[in-house]
């Protein structure tokens, strides 16, 4: 099992995975980003496994000696801590035409990079670390930039886009959120 200590770097494999696997994971992420950037929320939901944990912990500021305190631990307050059911409910609200903070919709761009894939003992499961820069512009000139890292567990499937997201932990590079809300998915 890789380290679950979020203050440590993603535990990459000594040898990078095959070009084919690397390519398939990256293409999966690019397609996922397209779905989010074009408000295809119901299709995006089909990429989530029914046992998904979608978690964005709160980060706090400490001296390096107290680095272990940086992330509010699992079971504490968080920016997101969602199940498939609660994600489905969020999307039900989102596509209703009544979710004022995304209607008119934001113009968003999910940029994905720095993809590192790690194979696990289960041939159908990979762990992936990646960086994101998510740009949001809405209404006239409101502009926010969200940057961070995602640590995913992806599960191979034979249909759809080839993977489902079984777990996503989002390390947003902020303590105080400088945007007026977190209405996007990451």
């Amino acid at each position: 099992m890789p380290s679950t200590d979020l203050t440590q770097a993603f535990e990459w494999p000594e040898k990078a995975v095959s070009l084919e696997l690397q390519n398939s994971v990256e293409q999966f992420y690019y397609r996922e980003a397209q779905l989010l950037d074009h408000q295809r929320y119901e299709t995006w939901l089909t990429l989530l496994a029914e046992d998904i944990q979608y978690w964005m912990p709160i980060r706090t500021s400490h001296t390096s000696r107290n680095k272990a305190l940086e992330y509010v631990r699992a079971g504490g307050n968080a920016h997101f801590d969602d199940t498939y059911e609660s994600m489905r409910a969020r999307i039900r609200g989102r596509v209703s035409g009544l979710n004022w903070t995304e209607d008119p919709p934001s113009r968003s761009r999910h940029i994905v990079s720095n993809v590192i894939v790690r194979e696990t003992e289960d041939p159908d499961t990979v762990e992936v670390g990646s960086s994101f820069l998510c740009y949001r512009n809405r209404i006239e000139r409101m502009t926010d930039i969200y940057v961070g890292e995602r640590r995913d567990v992806l599960r191979r499937v034979s249909d759809g886009l080839g993977f489902k997201i079984a777990k996503r932990t989002i390390l947003l590079d902020q303590s105080t959120i400088t945007a007026n809300n977190l209405s996007l998915f990451f």
Partner: peptide, 21 residues
């Protein structure tokens, strides 16, 4: 815990709309 952060938080399904207004 789950319900308050799902509803009344920056990304909550209620409070995100307060921020917009």
């Amino acid at each position: 815990r789950r319900q308050t952060l799902r509803t009344f938080s920056a990304g909550g399904v209620f409070e995100q709309d307060d921020g917009e207004n």
